[in-house]
Write a protein that binds this DNA or RNA. Structure first.
Length: 490
RNA sequence: GGCGCAUUCGUCUAGCGGCCUAGGACACCUCCCUCUCAAGGAGGAGAUCACCGGUUCGAAUCCGGUAUGCGCUACCA
């Protein structure tokens, strides 16, 4: 990259399904590099495989990027000076370069049928030879070509890879990597349906779009020598290469759908905060120093560097992701937490448009430090929204208590609270705590029984705060209900 | 099978020749706080730096080999 030239990097997803967290990880690193260097972040859609195309996946990919705030300067929806940004709309360009390569002797037409190629590979496997095209069509005479053409066979275009020598390239993360040309076969550049393969399309587009750094996952390293050969054949200068560490599943294999909630949008649906996902993704495969791991988006942009990127593939740790999400939830203001939790509460049927936001603001402090995901809110505080709660009456009887002790506890609490005139948490605790001793119970026993009576749960937010939010009427009603229920116990 | 990349606590990582008797974080354990659950605080356990050679006064750090893992090996990306 000449001095002063602006960084241009691209994220080039294929619309073949929902974007998983591995792709997103790559996108984030590319975006961070672009923003850090004041360059351009380009999104290019590599839709050259018509068979694997999944309708709707483009929208999902873009939504995932938007959710994380990875804005793009050129690409779908925004356009740009080097478009179109869909490879399916650039077919003529690839065909033209493919033809050019054939004319200049760097590529050739291949008429081999897929059946023959498959059989060839089977035989190679049987003979324990490395698989690869046997170059049967590499030196066809024009007469032979004419015969195939007259049979109506539509050829593919293959690159004429040098039979010997070595091809090397320099990667900003891995250093110099060298390949022996003998291990490379004559790959297809243009398929018989007129679509380019990845190899042709990526080289042509990266050049035409003036990409300065090719950033992508490590799984692409083995294809670089072929691309270098293509650059040479086309007389172009290759950009810089930056191969990013891959994300692995818990079984250490390349992260894929079968590893569970691998889709970014899945994280959104499961109650993760975009800033937490962004932060977490950034610190796997990249480190700033020996201790910092919480970064705001601006800090990430400011501190990101290729030097800090690791060489090793990394296992995506769901546990740590969850911890970080919980951490970010705890940093939210009550108002913000309420705003973010609302869709999940609505989904659980606990709130609707008419729900009082001020009430939500009173509820949120009860859950803020107890959840790791927004999806957990509803289960913790449903009793504060539901008209009626149901639970197993046996839960009312606490540790080392019996039915009569439970009944007495509920009766006494009811009497005491009926006479109570102040219903904030502090006053309620001051009133109820002494009651335990009077009943010959530990505070834990008494509070446990009341907890179940008002929430239907043995694990719930703090009792007095919960009572305060519930309010006098509802708490008395629930205690009375619980008292009724004790009659069903033996 | 061939080629390529990689190898520091279970996991994510710091380390780029002496500061390392290897630091941080998650998870785990103990204690404190405490009405349950959390959160928080204080501790703890956990890595002979894959292995074997070499270079060097000195190596987790440099070099070579071995092993292991992963990736690629399609008219998929």
């Amino acid at each position: 990259m000449p001095q002063g030239e602006i960084v241009r990097v691209r994220y080039a997803p294929s619309p073949t399904g929902a974007p998983h967290i591995g792709n997103t990880h790559t996108a984030l690193f590319i975006w961070l590099f672009a923003r850090h260097s004041g360059g351009r972040f380009i999104v290019r859609i590599e839709d050259t495989d018509r068979e694997r195309y999944v309708p709707g996946s483009l929208e999902t990919i873009l939504e995932g990027l938007r959710w994380l705030g990875l804005d793009w300067d050129e690409g779908p929806e925004v356009g740009g000076p080097k478009g179109p940004y869909f490879q399916s709309q650039r077919l003529k360009i690839y065909q033209q370069f493919a033809r050019h390569l054939v004319e200049t002797g760097h590529a050739y037409y291949c008429y081999c049928s897929q059946e023959r190629l498959e059989e060839m590979r089977r035989e190679q496997a049987a003979r324990k030879e490395p698989p690869g095209y046997d170059r049967r069509c590499r030196n066809l005479t024009s007469k032979e070509r004419g015969e195939f053409e007259s049979q109506g066979i539509v050829p593919v275009v293959r690159l004429k890879v040098p039979l010997e020598g070595k091809t090397a390239f320099h990667d900003l993360i891995h250093g110099t990597v060298t390949f022996d040309n003998r291990t490379l076969d004559d790959m297809v550049l243009l398929k018989s349906d007129g679509y380019p393969t990845y190899h042709l399309a990526v080289v042509v587009d990266d050049h035409l779009m003036e990409i300065t750094h090719i950033m992508r996952g490590d799984e692409w390293v083995p294809s670089v020598p072929r691309h270098i050969l293509l650059y040479q054949a086309l007389g172009w200068e290759p950009p810089k290469f930056v191969h990013l560490p891959m994300l692995l599943g818990p079984d250490r294999s390349k992260l894929a759908k079968r590893h569970g909630a691998a889709s970014v949008l899945g994280y959104k649906a499961n109650g993760y905060l975009p800033e937490a996902v962004l932060n977490f993704l950034a610190i796997v495969g990249w480190a700033y120093d020996d201790k910092t791991e919480i970064f705001t988006r601006d800090e990430l942009i400011q501190r990101f560097s290729i030097q800090g990127i690791g060489h090793t593939p990394a296992i995506f740790s769901q546990e740590k992701m969850d911890w970080m999400n919980g951490y970010y939830i705890r940093q939210l203001s009550i108002e913000e937490l309420a705003r973010r939790a609302m869709p999940f509460l609505a989904q659980a049927g606990l709130i609707d448009d008419k729900t009082d936001v001020a009430y939500l603001h009173r509820v949120m402090p009860l859950v803020q430090e107890r959840i790791k995901k927004l999806t957990e809110v509803a289960g913790l505080i449903d009793f504060l929204f539901l008209e009626k709660i149901s639970y197993d009456p046996a839960l009312l009887i606490g540790k080392e208590m019996d039915r009569s002790a439970t009944t007495r506890a509920l009766e006494s609490s009811l009497v005491l609270l009926k006479a109570q005139d102040s219903f904030d948490a502090v006053a309620l605790e001051a009133a109820l705590r002494p009651l335990a001793g009077q009943l010959g119970l530990t505070p834990g026993q008494l509070f446990g029984t009341i907890r179940v009576a008002i929430s239907g749960k043995t694990v719930a937010p703090p009792l007095f705060e919960s009572l305060a939010v519930l309010g006098r009427d509802r708490m008395l009603k629930r205690l009375a209900q619980a008292l009724e229920l004790t009659k069903t116990l033996r």
